[in-house]
Design a protein around this nucleic acid. Structure first.
Lengths: 162, 162
DNA sequence: CCGCTTTGGTTGTAGATACAAGCATGGGGA
DNA sequence: TCCCCATGCTTGTATCTACAACCAAAGCGG
């Protein structure tokens, strides 16, 4: 079976996409860790909860929105609970389920962390692009996610705090 | 200091970029792990070596091209060496330095892994985009990397095997 | 009502990465 | 020549994630 190798144009685009994918997480983690003692995943988790009704989400729901496996989320929430940023309690409708709720302290942490995070995103990412490129990135993202995330779990809700 | 929050357009683009950044590594790792028992980082490391003169690079050079810290690379190369895919030997010009060289077995592994990897990249990424979007992605990548990787360490050499 | 399967979640273990510390060589300046 | 610092790399430790095993509740067919 012959391989359909990438053309020069395709490879150029792919190389840059891979480079961005490699570099961006480290940048986000470093800033949030330094300024707010949170990983990007922890921040994202808290931000999801901050947007939810009653600041509460079920573990499964939260896991899908953050592209986490359930074990991973369980561990992270346990750590956040130890820091009193989140509290867990059994769901009343379904006794198998667990609800995670953002505490007041957790809310304060998100509110304090958001401006620095947004500033980083603006300075290091969005300000590098023209308005036209921002639109193009939007469309390209949609096209890619149609394949990478057909169910739209990640982009379903991603609120104002980000 | 007032926060300059993101506009709707900016947030839409950012949300999609973050989602892609979260999803893509898992996809690449899963395919390579399943088909070739390699992580994407390991594959990338081997691919860099396969492109280098005499299939040899110094550890520092290799670390920069793959955006790895030196400790990380050291551990990974140690594992690859244990699998006889890479060999290490002290550099003769500078006795502090270590040269990593791709073995024949390592070469075979890269050659065997490349087609499946390229197929995935094509089917799940590039084929989702129009030719015009591929060009746009190229330009957007350049703009972002000017900020994320000013020295161009990652994109300096990324060869035909990819 | 019983038993099977599915769903929701936690825990344990192994593997991988970051960070800090450490060691050896190189490269000047006094 | 001697000292000091920078460079190149390795190792050790703590943390985080993936994977698998596990338990409990829910749903469902008989």
């Amino acid at each position: 079976m012959d391989t359909n190798w990438l053309s020069d144009d395709e490879r150029a685009a792919w190389v840059r996409l891979v480079a961005v994918v490699e570099l961006l997480p480290g940048l986000l983690d470093a800033q949030l860790r330094h300024d707010s003692d949170l990983t990007h995943f922890e921040y994202f988790t808290l931000a999801m909860l901050s947007e939810a009704p009653d600041r509460t989400l079920r573990m499964t729901d939260l896991a899908q929105r953050s592209n986490a496996t359930l074990p991973r989320l369980s561990h992270v929430v346990k750590r956040l609970e130890a820091r009193d940023l989140v509290e867990r309690r059994p769901c009343e409708d379904d006794r198998r389920a667990t609800n995670a709720r953002l505490t007041d302290a957790g809310w304060d942490v998100v509110v304090a962390a958001a401006p620095g995070h947004v500033r980083l995103v603006r300075e290091r990412v969005l300000d590098s692009l023209t308005d036209e490129q921002v639109e193009q990135l939007h469309a390209i993202g949609d096209a890619l996610l149609a394949s990478l995330d057909p169910a739209g779990k990640l982009t379903g809700l991603y609120g104002a705090a980000d």
